[in-house]
């Protein structure tokens, strides 16, 4: 029997596969399609203190082997996420990783404090990397010192382990990873989307109303993989890797590069059953590679 379980701070995962934040709502839509208890965890859509209506449309645009989005953190706000969405998810035997976003340190602190009290929230993912909001978001994730201070502030109030979601839109992602580690982070999730744009070929006008959007999908996998590999070299913090994962081979790649678990984002839009399919294929794939457990596989590219 191949052992798929993964033990990370706050998270006893039955398998290393989970949907990425922003690509799975609060689970309701996908719950029509399969039993969410099959998942290793669920990273729910970002919550902010107040409700956010997000950006004007168009909010998405397809690109070569990928897509751009600028949703703008639309969400019903902390009270509703904690009072309605999270209790609804309690029917499933699956740990929730709550994504926390904001425009000020105080925002992050308030959401982190309150949302970590929910019984099914086993960890927080602090979103310091959203490229699509005017204030906050990525501005916390591109300066090591700011990232460290925010990590510390959130750690002080959170009652569950804190994972920081890193932005790839930086010169040196390792320095940000080291900074959040110093700030007391329990883990890292990476990567968020890469800032990009697409133009209307006729008019030259940006397709996305926000002008720029975050690039995701298979197009960004090589970048994400490289970054996970680099960060793994410099830190022992747990990493939940993501960026263009669409197949079981992609998941194997991320774990080989050093990710302890893997999140699937855009692929959910293409194949809504992608997460349970990867989970089902994982034991045979590991076996074929000569591994008895996920943990044996993690980081193998560094041991060559």
């Amino acid at each position: 029997m191949t052992n798929l379980t993964v033990k990370l701070p706050g998270l006893n995962l039955k398998n290393p596969i989970m949907p990425a934040s922003g690509c799975f709502g609060f689970g309701k839509e996908y719950a029509q399609l399969y039993d969410l208890s099959e998942l290793g965890a669920i990273m729910i859509k970002a919550a902010t203190v107040e409700m956010r209506l997000g950006n004007p449309t168009p909010r998405v645009a397809e690109t070569a082997s990928g897509m751009l989005n600028a949703i703008g953190l639309q969400n019903p706000g902390l009270t509703k996420v904690a009072g309605e969405e999270l209790p609804w998810l309690e029917r499933f035997d699956v740990p929730i990783i709550a994504n926390v976003a904001g425009t000020t340190t105080e925002d992050y602190v308030e959401v982190a404090r309150e949302i970590s009290k929910a019984p099914n929230v086993h960890a927080l993912e602090i979103n310091i990397s959203c490229p699509n909001v005017k204030q906050g978001g990525i501005t916390f994730g591109t300066d090591p010192l700011v990232a460290k201070e925010l990590t510390r502030a959130v750690k002080n109030v959170a009652s569950v382990p804190v994972y920081i979601k890193l932005s790839p839109n930086v010169t040196d992602i390792v320095s940000i990873a080291k900074a959040v580690e110093e700030g007391g982070a329990d883990g890292i999730t990476m990567i968020n989307t890469l800032l990009g744009m697409r133009l209307d070929p006729k008019t030259g006008r940006p397709i996305i109303a926000n002008i720029t959007g975050g690039l995701s999908g298979p197009a960004i996998k090589p970048v994400a993989l490289r970054m996970v590999y680099e960060v793994r070299k410099q830190t022992d913090l747990p990493i939940i890797g993501m960026g263009g994962v669409a197949t079981v081979e992609d998941a194997i790649d991320f774990m080989s590069a050093g990710a302890n678990a893997v999140a699937v984002g855009t692929a959910n839009f293409v194949n809504p059953f992608v997460c349970p399919e990867i989970i089902a294929q994982l034991p045979e794939k590991l076996h074929d590679l000569g591994y008895e457990s996920v943990e044996e596989l993690v980081g193998r590219s560094h041991r060559l």
């Binding site: 690509c23 709502g25 996908y30 399609l33 449309t57 949703i71």
Partner: peptide, 10 residues
Amino acid sequence: GCGIGACFAC
């Protein structure tokens, strides 16, 4: 995007 209500594109 997704067509099922999860991505908030539409």
